[in-house]
Design a protein around this nucleic acid. Structure first.
Lengths: 121, 121
DNA sequence: CGGCATCCTTTAGGATACTG
DNA sequence: CAGTATCCTAAAGGATGCCG
């Protein structure tokens, strides 16, 4: 799902008969792409925690998100980094020190998260 | 995942030693709940299409969302309805006629969807 | 400390066929 | 028309354990 970005809207060959009910492929839904960056069990929590401070180390992040396993946290962070929502800074020392934070886009997302929170359900 | 709402934050027993790094269980993240309503492959598309008009019949909806199967569309609609984002009106006639639309909350979501779309990535 | 690697279980998503 | 029912595959998610 994450690996194949455009698996849909591939049905434009059309049998050849006159198309009147041809599907509306001009689906706007740019929000879909961004929302997809927020799918997955812990994404919002990561954004939240990172949004509360300027930067955060891996271990701290992990402790602040109760119940997440290191593997999953790493995966989430890599996804968010690949999507340009999170930056990562690594010290190649022993012991290693890796710091994470939100990018500008990440902060924008953090902001809409706060808006979403306000919706009464 | 949808069926077990609070599987996390269950680690408050604490060994007994002074707790300084005790996890921050007061995770706010109310956005998480709403965002979760938007997970799943076609949710945003449904909200979008329904948001463009006042109401929409099942078949129309299905044709406007290229590639979705009836089963999946039904599932998505049931989920959105259960979450209070979509209403459903059924005529028990033959042939049946079922109409869907956004609730007030659904419209609020549709609105933030438009905001999210504006985020530059 | 901050990860990868490996394995496994659960869940989501979809194709197809049938029905009130 | 608007769904169910059944079956199947692909991902996501998570529990270890090892390594630089």
């Amino acid at each position: 799902m994450e690996t194949t970005p455009e698996t849909r809207a591939t049905a434009s060959h059309d049998g050849g008969h006159g198309a009147a009910d041809v599907v509306d492929n001009a689906m706007p839904c740019g929000a879909d792409r961004l929302l997809r960056m927020l799918w997955g069990q812990w994404k919002t929590h990561v954004i939240y925690v990172l949004g509360e401070q300027q930067a955060c180390r891996f271990g701290v992040l992990r402790r602040r998100i109760a119940g997440i396993s290191p593997k999953v946290l790493t995966t989430r962070l890599r996804e968010l980094e690949a999507d340009g929502l999170v930056w990562r800074e690594q010290d190649n020392t022993i012991p290693p020190k890796v710091t994470y934070g939100l990018t500008e886009t990440g902060r924008a997302v953090h902001h809409v998260l706060r808006d979403i929170e306000k919706i009464e359900v």
